[in-house]
């Protein structure tokens, strides 16, 4: 069987002094999978994600991202991943087109590629008329969709989404998830954190972190069954209620 694992983590650990932010997490994520990465505030999600993106070196354990080692091949990792967070993703004082061109340039796309990709992207989002507007002037939902598109502009193997839909209205949120499904369908692996439990249901598999450890990892349906819960919300509550750490 061909190995289609794009994220392989084995006992990945990050310590800050005495504090173990991420404690021996072990999991795999497959190509084209939508992987939900949940946990209470301070459970160690951000630290884990930073290690996976090659931004922070683990204290111990092993991990490969898209086949590259998180200790030694962080440059290659960065070329093969896309990243989008709720807090920062686009430059507000650049126009839509300038943002696309800038990020295309950063990922080393040729001028020709950037031109065609920009045109495609604007058409797909129906934003041709907004191409020369400042990002700051766009509604939040549009910004989120645009920043997701920019994050996958260079066709990464994996895209990391850190609470991508915070504060977005329910309709736009679903349009956003349509884009995630589409990306996954085209073979991009999606690694996503969220505080919306209904969104957790949209993931193929979900992990929940509590106090630095990955407590569970399964499909939403299996999780609900094993916790005798009606919703993911209940599953999460049962697990995270006992958490000792905050952020």
């Amino acid at each position: 069987m061909q190995d289609d694992r794009v994220i392989v983590c084995e006992k990945l650990t990050k310590r800050f002094g005495d504090f173990i932010a991420t404690n021996e997490i072990t999991f795999d994520v497959h190509k084209g999978e939508i992987f939900g990465f949940l946990g209470a505030n301070g459970a160690g999600k951000t630290t884990a994600m930073r290690m996976l993106c090659g931004l922070s070196s683990p204290s111990s354990g092993k991990a490969t991202i898209a086949g590259y080692d998180v200790y030694t091949q962080t440059e290659q990792i960065k070329k093969n991943i896309g990243y989008m967070s709720q807090k920062f993703s686009l430059y507000e004082n650049l126009t839509v087109r300038e943002n696309i061109e800038f990020f295309g340039g950063i990922y080393g796309l040729s001028d020709e590629q950037i031109r065609t990709k920009t045109a495609q992207l604007l058409q797909r989002l129906g934003m041709q008329n907004e191409a020369n507007k400042l990002v700051a002037s766009l509604p939040l939902g549009w910004k989120q969709k645009l920043s997701f598109s920019v994050a996958v502009l260079h066709e990464p193997k994996i895209v990391f989404l850190d609470e991508p839909t915070g504060g977005v209205d329910p309709v736009t949120r679903r349009q956003f998830w349509d884009m995630i499904y589409e990306a996954a369908d085209s073979g991009i692996t999606v690694f996503v954190t969220t505080h919306y439990m209904d969104e957790a249901e949209y993931c193929h598999r979900i992990s929940i972190m509590v106090d630095g450890k990955m407590e569970v990892l399964d499909t939403p349906t299996n999780l609900k069954n094993s916790f005798h819960a009606r919703s993911m919300d209940e599953v999460f509550y049962q697990l995270a209620r006992g958490a000792k750490r905050g952020d």
Binding site: G39, A40, N41, F236, Y237, A240, R241, A243
Partner: peptide
């Protein structure tokens, strides 16, 4: 409750 995890929200 924005940005707060579901348990703290409850």
């Amino acid at each position: 409750t924005t940005g707060v995890d579901p348990v703290s929200r409850k």
